[in-house]
């Protein structure tokens, strides 16, 4: 009850909407950056044994650096700004994407690659119609684990060096020992993430799997 009333208070003052959307924007930005860079690196490492051998230690290194270290260092080096915040979150997620997509790139079917070569697909056509669809399950896996990881890290980033967002609010109410408001923000954001899952991620995945469903029938 206390949580609901706290939620009501925050909603009326406009804080809830403001801070939740600030966090959501950061989650989205960090997600896009991490998926784009991570996928590109993953595909390169999966396709080239040499590159993989050269950069594998770096991937392991970044996989194991604590999120907090990356966040603090990036604030110190790049200042307390939005780019540093989003960059730090993305950097935490990139190695995960790399590892997942790399596995996919290693298992690409050479038959389709040869077909694309014989029929002279351009690089772009090969990427879009041959490579990416084969990697779809791996992208889906990276997305699933990615969104949840990112939103958790975004809160830490906000707590440490931003003046808005759910993380900032939780920090504020932590200092006031206001558990109800902390839980209110948590609940609202979890609800938002559930909506993202069911309204965006799952429909997208179903669409990209439409040809498989057809095969089963």
């Amino acid at each position: 009850m206390a949580v609901l009333s706290a939620m009501g208070t925050e909603l009326r003052s406009g804080d809830l909407l403001f801070h939740t959307s600030a966090t959501l924007v950061r989650v989205a930005a960090a997600f896009v950056v991490a998926m784009a860079i991570g996928s590109a690196i993953g595909i390169f490492l999966g396709r080239s044994k040499l590159l993989n051998r050269l950069f594998d230690p770096w991937v392991i290194l970044f996989l194991n650096i604590p999120a907090l270290v990356i966040i603090v260092l990036s604030y110190i080096w790049f200042g307390l700004n939005e780019a540093a915040a989003i960059g730090a979150v993305a950097l935490n997620k990139i190695p995960n994407v790399v590892v997942t997509v790399r596995e996919g790139a290693k298992s690409l079917d050479p038959q389709f690659g040869e077909m694309a070569k014989v029929f002279r697909f351009s690089r772009w056509q090969t990427l879009r119609h041959v490579v990416v669809p084969q990697l779809q399950p791996y992208f889906a896996a990276a997305t699933r684990s990615g969104v949840s990881l990112i939103w958790k890290i975004v809160l830490v980033v906000e707590l440490l060096g931003r003046s808005n967002g759910v993380g900032f609010q939780i920090h504020l109410h932590f200092q006031l020992f206001d558990v109800a408001t902390i839980l209110a923000y948590t609940l609202v954001f979890v609800a938002v993430m559930l909506l993202v899952e069911y309204l965006i991620l799952q429909p997208v995945e179903n669409y990209s799997r439409r040809w498989r469903v057809a095969g089963v029938m």
Partner: peptide, 16 residues
């Protein structure tokens, strides 16, 4: 195009 091919397996992209 000079050369094209019919492979042993049809090699059609299943997602197209």
């Amino acid at each position: 195009q000079k050369v094209s091919a019919v492979f042993q397996e049809p090699r059609l992209l299943p997602w197209r």
